[in-house]
Every structure is written in structure tokens, then in C-alpha cells.
């Protein structure tokens, strides 16, 4: 009996040690020498593998960072400047502070503002609808409301509002930019999140002439240029019948909002104005 136990113990131990030696040499032979900083950088990244940085995943991004030896052109939109500072520390570099960003839907052509003139009967895909026709309202630039952005979002941060038929971005947005790429019409833009989440932007990207745009959508930017004149900081530019507010220059003074005749300029998260009725009516219309 004892012999049996002894033999089995000895033979198992023998096999074990032979294997250990083999494994040791194989591991030595096939060892991949990697910069240890890659692991450190990867650990400091959010690990969502969202692809917002332009790489397939966080690991690839970390590899690129370490290989590049600089942070130029590389940014993790999810972690923002906080993460990039940590990454810079690991790599012994100084991080350039980038402001946190958020996805902004630049179309307000809701069901009531831009009524449907035809009915789409087909798959729910913006990419397909965009190639098929100009849209139910007739606006060739506006949101199609079929949710390619929603399916592209890894963070559950964008949803179609059933009332308006337009996508709404919530606070879960990490500005990875997936929706920007998914939208066939370029309706969505990454803009500075702004102090206290306050943002001002032109909620329209229609480049048609004012009268044509207005015919399809009552809240379209008609390219009148009033906001350009109203802006004290030269943050607004007008091209192709369309105003654009540069979020780097905008000081959130709100002068343009009151000036816009169609209510195409939106302000978000500002306290209500004390002034007269028209401005209130506008903010109401903007939802």
C-alpha cells in the first residue's frame, strides 16, 4: 500500500519537475521584450475599448503612445485631460490640457419643426436613407432620425426622443466620436463641454439658401448673418448660408441667441433670462 503511494508521489513529482524545466526554457526562448510602460499606460486608460482615440482598443492606443514617445495628436477622449496627465507622467512628458468635450446634435428639425412630406418604408438605417433620398422633411442636411448614432454608441449616451424623432445626448457621453463617424450627414459634432455644461451652438447644418431651408424646416439657419454682427468676440462665421459658432472663441454671452430670427441658435443649461417674452418663447421652442 505504502509503496503504491510512494511510487505515485515520486512519479508525479518527477513529471512535474521535468515539465517545469521545459516550460522555463520555452518561456525564455519565446520571451517577448516589451516596454513595461505599455502595461502601465494601458492600466491608466479607461479600458472601454471604444475606439474613440482612433485605435482599435486601449492596448493599441497604449502601444502607439509609448512608440510615439510624445502625446502629439493622441488623446483619449473618454478619460480626457485627467487620464492624459497620468499617461504623460508615466511617460515622463507634459500633457497638453484639452478641455472635456461632448457630442452635440446640430439639428432641431423635429417632427413639428420640419414636418414629413413623404413616409419612409424601409430599414432603419441612416446610411441607407441618406443614399435613398433627401429625408422625410426634404432637408438634405438634417437628421434622418433612424438612429445610426444610437447603435454606434458604446456608452448608452445617445437616444432618439420619440416625441421629436431627434437624438438626444445624455451625461454618459464621453466624446469618443463614434456617433460623429456613424452619422452620414455629419449632424453631430464634438464640442467643448463648457463651464457648468453651458453650451451655445447653431442647431442646424443646412447649407441651402435661406428661403429653401426655411421651406422645409422652420428652425433652420437661413444664413442671415445677424448673429455674426451680434457676436462681440468674432466667434461666429458664416459660410454657405450657414452660421457656425467656434466653441474655442465663444464666451457664452448669449447675445446671438436672442438675435436669431428662426431660433436656430441653442443655449443649454443657462439660468432663465429675466428679459421680456420673446427670448423665453425661443428657449421654449428649443426645448
Amino acid at each position: 500500500m505504502n509503496e503504491v503511494i510512494l511510487y505515485s508521489l515520486v512519479s508525479l513529482a518527477g513529471i512535474g519537475s521535468v515539465m517545469a524545466v521545459v516550460l522555463y526554457f520555452v518561456a525564455q526562448k519565446f520571451k517577448v521584450i516589451e516596454d513595461p510602460r505599455i502595461d502601465d499606460v494601458e492600466a491608466s486608460l479607461p479600458g472601454a475599448n471604444c475606439g474613440g482615440c482612433g485605435f482599435a482598443g486601449c492596448r493599441n492606443f497604449a502601444e502607439a503612445l509609448v512608440k510615439n514617445e510624445s502625446l502629439e495628436g493622441l488623446n483619449c477622449p473618454v478619460g480626457g485631460s485627467a487620464t492624459m496627465t497620468v499617461v504623460a507622467e508615466i511617460m515622463g512628458l507634459a500633457a497638453d490640457a484639452s478641455e472635456p468635450k461632448i457630442a452635440v446634435v446640430r439639428c432641431n428639425g423635429s417632427r413639428s419643426h420640419a414636418p414629413a412630406k413623404v413616409v419612409l418604408d424601409g430599414v432603419s438605417s441612416c446610411a441607407f436613407a441618406h443614399s435613398l433620398f433627401s429625408g422625410e422633411s426634404g432637408c438634405p442636411n438634417g437628421c434622418l432620425g433612424l438612429g445610426d448614432c444610437v447603435t454606434s454608441c458604446q456608452f448608452d449616451a445617445i437616444h432618439i426622443d420619440p416625441q421629436t424623432g431627434l437624438p438626444v445626448v445624455n451625461e454618459k457621453c464621453v466624446a469618443c466620436g463614434a456617433c460623429v463617424k456613424a452619422c452620414p450627414r455629419g449632424v453631430i459634432e464634438l464640442r467643448n463641454k463648457g463651464k457648468k455644461d453651458r453650451r451655445i451652438f447653431v442647431s442646424c447644418i443646412n447649407t441651402e439658401k435661406g428661403a429653401v431651408a426655411k421651406k422645409n424646416c422652420e428652425v433652420a439657419c437661413i444664413g442671415c448673418g445677424k448673429c455674426v454682427k451680434a457676436c462681440p468676440f468674432e466667434a461666429i462665421t458664416l459660410s454657405n448660408n450657414l452660421a457656425y459658432i467656434d466653441f474655442e472663441k465663444c464666451k457664452l454671452c448669449r447675445k446671438c441667441v436672442a438675435e436669431c430670427p428662426t431660433g436656430a441658435i441653442h443655449e443649454l443649461n443657462f439660468p432663465p433670462r429675466k428679459e421680456a417674452a420673446p427670448a423665453e418663447a425661443l428657449t421654449e421652442a428649443n426645448g
Partner: peptide, 13 residues
């Protein structure tokens, strides 16, 4: 099934 719609999406991509 709206096969051709989906196929067009794929062709586009």
C-alpha cells in the same frame, strides 16, 4: 425581409 436595403447599406460601407 428588406434584403436589398441591408445589402445596399453593406455595399455603401
Amino acid at each position: 425581409r428588406q434584403l436589398l436595403d441591408y445589402i445596399r447599406v453593406g455595399k455603401g460601407a
